[in-house]
Design a protein around this nucleic acid. Structure first.
Lengths: 222, 222
DNA sequence: TAGATTGTTAATCGATTAACAATC
DNA sequence: TAGATTGTTAATCGATTAACAATC
């Protein structure tokens, strides 16, 4: 495998391809052309072919792509064939909701612990887990060789906890805390900043309101 | 206000500016230059000035930007000064977690109802709300003039419910269901596709693993 | 006034789309 | 073989960065 970087513009589209292929598979489709897929996904066929060719020539001229094969290949590219050990740090509402999310295992993510500082929740059952006290986290992470941490702690705590976890060997974070974690080079952070997503919605709704209130009124091109 | 479209590459960065300005405000900063902000945010000063100038000349030569003023202006651009009525559809784990999320009000989002089909949860208290039966949703949406719906329902249900809500006057969706909603022109959809985010994390961790296992081994530039 | 920093134009860079020869 | 559709190169488009005159 070569060291060529593939742009994140491309790689961020892979999960969506994967999802559409999964649907096609369920529907019993055997093959799909970039053209037909492009119509379903509302992107250009050109983009699909370009994207896929970053990873290999999965298609065949005159035929298109074999659905099952392409699905499996993208799964491998995404690393969904491996198993990874995960803990959840922060057993608040979001942390608990994620702990109950059933599809982690399907993607190779094995949630094997959940931690919190609050005495009120320590000992509670969440999904199939028992909330443990935060003080037990370091030993657990080391012993179980935890690779990924889901951070659902207040933003003030996030940076400190993340740093500690990196020292304990954690390589990746699914970060729900509203801070930009600045960690060392070889650590992966995937942010889920719900509040920013919500503001995006607010912005787009506002713009819509303006357009609506303008309908029929002057439309100056200047 | 003119009809000029501002690219989403720009508008998606606004919430992050807003967040950094909020922090600066808390820290008591009165003014900030694009250069200093660029260092904090790890973007170029040029980009900051370009982005802001899409909306107006908020700065002053030789001085920079007034923190409080810029914060307020971006808040207005994002439409955070208005109040919007919101319902949550789907009182599963995520729906309940969001209902308990305290910061909605701060951003002008007033959660005034939560609905589900499951008899087991109807009547339960969630945050300050009582889960209502789905059958009562249409009347509620119309009477309360609900503008936004948060969709936390299974992906199979999402499209149908969204369509129904649009007919009832809903203008925007915060969509947590893993489907691409295809709705009419003037409807806003902001997706939170957690599973796709997770796959992104998986991809980046896999790449990291490959790099690590290669360290010290041959590094062919071809 | 001199120094700082913006707003804005021009240059560069990267991503998307179009086109088509290769080939199943 | 003829038709379909890929893989890939070239053209276009858009976004980012650099540069600098304007000005506080």
């Amino acid at each position: 495998m070569r060291a060529k970087e593939i742009s994140s513009a491309v790689t961020k589209r892979l999960p969506r391809y994967y999802r559409y292929l999964s649907e096609l598979k369920e529907q019993g489709a055997e093959r799909i052309s970039s053209k037909e897929l492009s119509e379903r996904m509302q992107v250009t066929a050109s983009q699909i072919r370009q994207d896929l060719n970053n990873f290999g020539g999965f298609g065949q001229q005159g035929y298109g792509y074999n659905v099952e094969h392409l699905y499996n290949e993208i799964g491998k590219i995404l690393g969904l064939n491996r198993t990874r050990k995960v803990i959840i740090v922060g057993a608040g509402h979001i942390g608990q909701a994620l702990a109950n999310y059933p599809d982690f295992e399907k993607r190779g993510f094995c949630i094997c612990g959940i931690f919190d500082v609050a005495k009120e929740v320590v000992g509670d059952k969440v999904g199939s887990l028992i909330v443990q006290d935060m003080s037990r986290m370091p030993e657990f992470v080391k012993k179980e060789k935890i690779q990924i941490a889901i951070l659902t702690v207040p933003k003030e705590e996030a940076a400190g906890i993340a740093k500690q976890l990196v020292d304990l060997g954690v390589e990746g974070f699914w970060n729900f805390a509203l801070v930009d974690l600045k960690l060392s080079e070889g650590v992966v952070v995937e942010n889920v900043h719900l509040e920013e997503s919500l503001m995006n919605l607010a912005y787009n709704i506002s713009r819509l309101d303006i357009v609506n209130s303008k309908l029929g009124v002057d439309y100056e091109e200047n």
